[in-house]
Nucleic acid binder design. Sequence first.
DNA 1: TGGTACATGTAACATGTTACATGATTAG
DNA 2: CTAATCATGTAACATGTTACATGTACCA
Lengths: 177, 177
Amino acid sequence: MSSRNLNATAASLLGFLHEGPLTGWDLVATAQQRIGDFWSLTQSQVYRELAAMAADGLIEAGERGPRDRRPYLITDAGRAAFAQWLGRNPDEETIRFPLLLIVVFGRYLPPERLAEIVSHHRKLHAARLAEYERAREQLTAGPADAYHLAPLDFGIRYEQAALAWFDALPPEIRGAA
Amino acid sequence: MSSRNLNATAASLLGFLHEGPLTGWDLVATAQQRIGDFWSLTQSQVYRELAAMAADGLIEAGERGPRDRRPYLITDAGRAAFAQWLGRNPDEETIRFPLLLIVVFGRYLPPERLAEIVSHHRKLHAARLAEYERAREQLTAGPADAYHLAPLDFGIRYEQAALAWFDALPPEIRGAA
DNA sequence: TGGTACATGTAACATGTTACATGATTAG
DNA sequence: CTAATCATGTAACATGTTACATGTACCA
């Protein structure tokens, strides 16, 4: 019961556990699929948070199943902690964009190399946009779920804005016309 | 000379030191102003990286000036390390967007509260857009500097996309019409 | 029967955050 | 003379990343 206060990663795990017991492994997969586009986490982190939350009484481990699967269930204390976290004003987003650092210091790089880096990243964004659009088709095929659609819609708008930015870059950065 | 390889934060400090010697304090201010919108760093981190880079021979401390100001100058090894870092393929950006977590779990929150949170964040984004636009006016007033303008342009497009997203949210999330 | 995917966990380290301690200089 | 700002730095801790160790079950 060390009772640190909940971070967003731990809180998200509690969120998923509202839908039923899940193992660490399942939680990693669920989180990557459902929030991975705007909230990254690793397997190590998940097991660490699960151990801490179990110690704090927010979750409880069930019996081990096949392959040592160990499902966790949320407790009433866990539900309360989640509700408390959810009602707080969330922090503003942080963006860490290494490519923009390269651009800022672009004068120190041979122009062709800069253009190559930029063009490579444009491709990555185009691919992500395509992926998001496929995901949206899948989501909108089933019953409407505004809460899942909204973040995806953000991703789509974000990638569209990014592509427009790439295309508007001046020749010093983007390379030959 | 422990020679870890350069992280983006340390590399950025080296980038700024190309323009002349700066103290830790100056570097914090410079970094926050020039790259703070897409690469956050704290004062603690800067002093830590400076100590590490000095130990690695990438920078050298000059004589202490008034108020114990301690300017650092980049060495040839530092310039080489920077060039090497700059030429690498940068990682993809990471976005950590707590508001989207709240939205994903929005079904567990009273609708008015969700709408309130969302509306508050919309205001923050509108304010950031206004700030960026002011900054762009200032930048475009002087001699054109594509390398600084480009990241700012990204910020503007990003905030515009964000605002459009807010305005397109369905009533379940955004609140009453 | 051998490879792949499933599953848990630890260790070590890098990075990021918050708070504090200390003192110098400047402006009012 | 006093408050604000400048300036350096440390300490403690939270979070994020990478690599590894161990073993299970399924499927071709």
